[in-house]
Nucleic acid binder design. Structure first.
Lengths: 345, 345
DNA sequence: CTGATTCTCTACAGCGCTGTAATGTGCACC
DNA sequence: GGTGCACATTACAGCGCTGTAGAGAATCAG
């Protein structure tokens, strides 16, 4: 390991510790000769500042924690990427905690509040309740990502899920669809995004004057594509008919596409399909995926901005920022011919 | 922020700091009454240990750094997930650094060697040279992931790329293919995995007694599916014919599938296709993807094992571990009828 | 040439925790 | 009722760095 200390460099260069520290930090008032001498000592000894010590002294860590359910769901991976990039741009590092991973993961994610580990927290609660969040956070600066029922004192960045779902339904309606399903109703308590998306789905149907048929709320045993595939198979086998689907997320859409193909149902001719999240793969599927596209980059920028304001002392009430989304029109639900001017918000 | 200190708890409970510390660390020899008293004080004051201070005192951080090119390529996301889970299982946290993200990212990834930030480093070099690695690492424990030309003093975990590529070619040959392409030759200097995979591809062709046609080494302008799509379009337009493709990775395979479909080329009838990495999506594509499947979980377990050994003092020569892979047979390159007993290593 | 001002640099006390070594306390046993 | 021993607890010196306060050197105006 590296055991060259500031004091060693100081001795080697014949100056005080603090002068070395100043050189390291590019403090302006140092004679060039001194600076050169110190720099030479640093290079020669291979000195590297010890971050923990610096932290202890300054109280700042330069790290943010990002709590997401899991890393290998494309939406979270892409979001994490944007956040990490954005954080790096502001000289912060990001410590990623997966909250649904394993035994101790949940506890660990809370434990981040172990004082002094990070300067602030970005959290994407999916299964955590408002109370759990409130408790876990202690008094650290935090910004919440995504929808959900959380204490309003917290900052939060999200897209308008209800509106987006309404728009998705609207697109399908304009494509002449009348039996529109929602794929992705969890068995257990619904996750917050699902709640909002279903609400928007219902609103969309109502606005179009379509009947709401509970058979068209297709339940899922899990979050994976395989679960969606089996759900569609089951639904078809049960004789339920539909000509449009709004999917809770793209992973589910993927499974649906495959199930439909296996059943010789044509997309979009027989069934048009709208996904959600705009996973990168969606654009290149054999039937490319029309999908709700949250502006991930803007989510990241906004969230980091808010968090850094908190870190730097802002202590006002929680701010709720709605980030824009678009509906990315591709093959699985094309633009209605009658509707060239159509643009979503 | 949280400013309850050990000494505050000690005062509140009427014991010494060290006793509180002992309670926090579940040190066995404490009278139950004392433990209870201290625990009550901890709870009441909402004490949380300050990690930087603990670090400074112990020298250990409980963090590992993971340097990967980027988070939102499925292979890296899945690998990161496995590594983070595995690390969590051993009470380590993982700090993810993206090495090709932006301006300062490269520097930052090296800077991790800022002493005391992490106990060890997991690095997946793709573009870093051996020298850069050697330099960046200083003297921290490190384990390298994936192939590449790196100093042999380092531990390293990888799959046998050459062999896997040979097996992929072999599968295609057994399917009767004779014009087998390799999709994914970078324009710039080849990345290490590409080098190995092309080597295996060539070996596979030779073993089958097939001619090597450089037209079948299809170059790419980038790593994305879109690049692959355009590359296949170009290749078809140029009149180059092929009946099998080995893809450098699944993302590329995705683009190829779409380009082939657009060109009315049937998969696998006209062209059979083998991907690489076994991205989760591959199983659910409309034409599911036959792919080389590295055992990511085992890569993660092995890498963490090796790293922790290093952290705990092992200082011997570099160990190279080859982790097994399989070829996941799916629709894009099915099992040859003649070959029911076929199994890869 | 003097005193004020600016520029450089230093000394040293913490930041909050843990390891060490030492001290105190209770119990069993002869 | 001592003696020994194991159990409980404490005091305190760091871990390596930075902030503060201030000393010393250099510069400048008058």
């Amino acid at each position: 390991m590296n055991n060259v200390r500031l004091v060693d460099v100081a001795a080697h260069a014949g100056v005080s510790m603090k002068t070395v520290s100043n050189v390291v930090h590019a403090y302006p008032h140092i004679r060039p000769a001194t600076r050169a001498k110190v720099q030479a000592a640093i290079d020669e000894l291979g000195y590297r500042p010890h971050s923990a010590a610096r932290r202890l002294a300054t109280g700042r860590t330069g790290m943010l924690s990002l709590a997401i359910p899991v890393l290998d769901i494309p939406y979270f991976a892409e979001l994490a990427r944007c956040l990490a990039d954005e954080a790096a741009r502001r000289d912060y590092r990001v410590l990623i905690q997966q909250t649904i991973a394993g035994e101790k993961a949940e506890r660990a994610a809370l434990d981040v509040s172990e004082a002094g580990l990070v300067d602030g927290i970005l959290a994407h609660p999916v299964s955590l309740s408002a109370d759990e969040i409130e408790q876990a956070v202690a008094r650290q600066p935090i910004v919440l990502l995504g929808e959900g029922d959380v204490p309003s004192r917290f900052d939060r960045v999200m897209i308008d899920n209800v509106k987006a779902a309404r728009e998705a339904v609207d697109l399908l309606v304009r494509l002449g669809r009348r039996r529109i399903a929602f794929l992705g109703v969890e068995r257990a308590p619904l996750t917050p995004p699902t709640v909002d998306r279903i609400a928007g789905y219902r609103q969309g149907l109502e606005e179009a004057g379509l009947e709401i048929d509970d058979d068209l709320l297709i339940p899922l045993d899990g979050f994976g594509s395989g679960d969606a595939l089996r759900a569609i198979e089951r639904t078809l086998a049960a004789g339920t008919r539909f000509d449009g689907i709004v999917c809770r997320h793209d992973g589910v859409a993927l499974g649906a596409l495959r199930a439909l193909r296996a059943a010789k149902v044509r997309v979009p001719d027989d069934v048009a399909l709208v996904g959600w999240d705009d996973d990168t793969a969606g654009e290149f599927l054999e039937t490319s995926l029309t999908t709700v596209r949250p502006d991930k980059q803007m989510i990241a920028t906004t969230a980091i901005d808010l968090l850094i304001e908190r870190i730097e002392g802002y202590d006002g009430p929680g701010r709720h920022v709605i980030v824009p989304h678009t509906i990315e029109i591709r093959e699985s639900a094309p633009l209605p011919a009658s509707d060239r001017g159509f643009r979503d918000s």
